[in-house]
Simulated assay, not measured.
Amino acid sequence: MPKINGNEIKPGNVLEHDNGLWVAVKVGHVKPGKGGAFAQVEMKNLRDGRKLNERFRSEDKVERVRLEQKDQQFLFEADDMLTFMDSETFEQIELPADLLGDRRPFLQDGMTVTIEYYGDEALNVSLPQKVTCKVVETEPVVKGQTAANSYKPAVLDNGVRIMVPPFIAQDEDIIVHTETFEYSERA
C-alpha cells in the first residue's frame, strides 16, 4: 500500500491509522508562528463510525488505502438487512441498513449503487448523486409569488421532508441531491 506524507491527505482519502480504516472528512492546514506546519485532519472510522481529530506533520507517513468499487443492484430489504446483487457475477450480499444512515429513504428498488470493498469486507454504500422523487404533500402554488429565495416545505414519497421552490406542486416529480437533501430540478 502506498504511503503518503501527512500534508498530502485530502478529504475522501481512506487511511490506515491506529489499526483501523478511517476516511478523511475535513482537512485543514495550520501554520503556527512557532514550530512546523501540520495538517489537522477530522477522520471517521469506516467500520464503527467513530470520529477522531488527528494532527499530521509533513514528515509523518500515513498508509493510504485504495478501496475496490463495485456497482451492485439493490434487490430488497428484510430484517434491517439490505440485499444487493453483483450485476456481473449475480452473487448476492447482505449489508446492514444503518450503513446508509439518513440517506436510506432514497434507496429505491432496482437502483444501482456503488459498494466499496476492502478485501472481501464491504465498508460503504454510495447512492447515485441525484434521484427522482414524487412530491406527495406541499402547499398549493400561489400566483404571483415569485420572490427569489422563497422556498416552501414539501414531503416526498419516501417520507423525507425538504424545501422546494414555490412553483413545485403536489404529485410532481423532482430530482433531489442524495448527499445534501436539497431540491435540484424538475424531473
Rank of each mutant, 00 (worst) to 15 (best):
K3G: 07
I9L: 00
K10L: 06
P11T: 05
P11Q: 08
P11A: 04
G12E: 07
L15S: 04
G20D: 07
G20H: 03
L21D: 03
V23E: 06
G28Q: 00
G28P: 00
V30G: 00
V30H: 00
K31W: 00
K34G: 09
A37G: 01
A37Y: 00
F38N: 01
M43F: 08
K44Y: 07
L46W: 05
L46M: 09
R50G: 12
R50W: 08
K51Q: 09
N53A: 04
E54T: 06
F56W: 01
F56V: 04
R57E: 06
E59S: 13
V62K: 02
E63I: 05
Q69R: 14
Q69W: 09
K70W: 10
K70V: 12
F76D: 14
A78Q: 12
D79T: 12
D79G: 14
T83W: 11
D86Y: 11
S87P: 14
E88N: 15
T89D: 14
E91Y: 11
E91I: 13
I93Q: 11
E94G: 13
L99F: 15
L99C: 11
L100Q: 08
D102G: 04
P105T: 05
D109C: 08
I115D: 04
E116N: 07
G119A: 06
G119R: 03
N124M: 12
S126V: 08
P128Y: 09
T132D: 14
C133A: 13
E137A: 10
E139K: 06
E139D: 11
E139V: 02
V141R: 09
V141M: 09
K143D: 15
T146D: 12
A147P: 01
A147Q: 06
A148K: 03
A148N: 01
S150A: 08
Y151R: 04
G159K: 03
R161E: 02
V164P: 01
P166Q: 07
F167R: 12
A169S: 14
Q170V: 15
D173P: 10
I174L: 03
T178L: 02
E179D: 09
F181T: 01
Y183H: 03
S184E: 08
A187Y: 03
A187K: 06
